[in-house]
Amino acid sequence: MFVVSKWSFALVPPVTLGFFRVALGAAALWVGLRLVGDPATPGREDWPALVGLGGWVTVTIVAQFLGTELTNASQGSLLTVLTPIFVVLLSGALLGERVTKTKALGIALAAVGTAVVVAGQYHLRRIAVGNAAGVALLVVASFAWAGYTVWGVAVVRKFSALTAATYSTIAATPMLGVLAVAELWYLGRGIATIPLSGPSLLSVAFLGFGSTAAAWYLWYKGLEYVPAGTVAVFYFLQPVVGTALAAALLDEQVGAWFVAGSLTIGAGVWVVSRERADEPARNRHGDGSELRE
């Protein structure tokens, strides 16, 4: 997602690209929800929570895309470690999830592994040099995604992952639409100036179907089974997957640091996952009935 979006900014402005991405993702999720169906449909009393999740989505997309445009890949990769940390802190404060010694150890291992992977792929000097505003925006994006994760728990467990992802994405679409119009006005560009070329359409399709519809649904699906803090630790795998794909598809070189860091991240994820595997499922619907065992 970071690679495709960074490349796409030359064709489509960041916020406008975010609008296209979320609008397409919302449409795909809506079709999926209609095909699958959900016995519990959100009522009027549920819309404040759904609109709130849409707000978290909007802040995430705007801050993430603007921050990505202003920074380099190494900074973006390194700052991903903040998201699971924010999730653990918020879930502890708002959901009462305990940060056990085992979970803290797993998160620490994964964070160290991420730093090792990034340091092994990029020069440390490149990580330190960059746009301060871009770094700040990526920090905001990390916190906003943590907010989307933690505040989404109640909605996911009352309805379903698909319902929560669908309606929150739909709620975010008009918010991003207004910001996209403002961005184009500020840049002095019209919608007609955005090229409808094959590459631009493919990038929007990837971001909409893959990075939004599929990824956000699967992220919320994890919340049906395990606590938010456990789901969050898998976020550490992003730089590993990104680097591995770059090596496989772009012939980028990986060395011993990447292997060592990846193994450390894997150990951290395994530690957190094992802790949850040894506990009985406690997730529930909003009515108190068991959700999954």
Rank of each mutant, 00 (worst) to 15 (best):
M1W: 13
W7T: 00
W7A: 04
S8D: 07
A10Q: 10
L11G: 04
G18C: 04
F20L: 15
V22Y: 11
A23I: 05
W30E: 03
R34G: 02
V36H: 15
G37E: 02
G37A: 05
G52Y: 11
W56G: 01
V62Q: 14
A63I: 04
Q64K: 12
G67P: 15
T68C: 12
E69Q: 15
Q75W: 08
G76T: 05
L78F: 15
V88W: 02
G92M: 02
L95D: 07
A104G: 05
V116I: 08
R125C: 01
N131C: 05
A136C: 06
A136F: 09
L137K: 15
L137G: 07
A154I: 02
L162V: 05
L162M: 12
T173F: 00
P174R: 05
L176V: 03
L176C: 04
A180E: 04
A182R: 15
L184R: 13
Y186E: 12
G190K: 14
P195D: 14
L196A: 12
G198D: 11
S200L: 02
L201E: 15
T212R: 12
W219T: 00
W219F: 14
W219K: 07
G222C: 06
V226K: 09
A228I: 02
A228W: 10
T230A: 08
Q238G: 00
V240T: 11
A247E: 05
A248I: 05
L250V: 02
E252L: 01
A256P: 13
F258S: 06
V259N: 09
A267V: 00
V269Y: 07
W270H: 14
S273L: 03
P280C: 04
H285Y: 11
